[in-house]
């Protein structure tokens, strides 16, 4: 199978603004890679339950003991823009 990649939609999902040249180049590159996946996509593989941990370990939950980590100043030190102790971004629409 070869699926054509809708590069504009994928870039939108990935929050990447691409110019025309990039779009063309990436569409070409990605199509080539995706073509390479054909053999894998066509394999008949058993539908076993997958463990996301490579060694199949199961989760150990952490005790609910709170502690202080970053200071307010440390948290904001790398902020590109901040005001009144808050991070500031251009208006976001709901």
């Amino acid at each position: 199978m070869t699926d054509k990649i809708d590069i504009k939609n994928v870039a939108k999902l990935a929050a990447l603004k691409l110019n025309e040249d990039e779009q063309q180049q990436l569409e070409k590159d990605l199509s080539m890679i995706i073509e390479h996946f054909a053999a894998l996509s066509e394999m008949d593989l058993p539908d076993d339950k997958i463990s996301i941990h490579p060694l199949g370990m199961s989760l150990n939950l952490a005790e609910d003991i709170a502690s202080k980590s970053l200071t307010h100043e440390e948290a904001l030190r790398n902020a590109p823009d901040s005001k009144d102790g808050q991070f500031v971004v251009p208006p976001s629409l709901d």
């Binding site: 952490a62 980590s69 970053l70 991070f87």
Partner: peptide, 30 residues
Amino acid sequence: RCYVLDTDLPNESLCPTCLGLPGSLPAPNK
């Protein structure tokens, strides 16, 4: 393991994980 705080002071209870700093990881609460 940041405190769940009921405060009006912004950005007081943060660590690399809940601030999404690079390299941080989640440790789920029992």
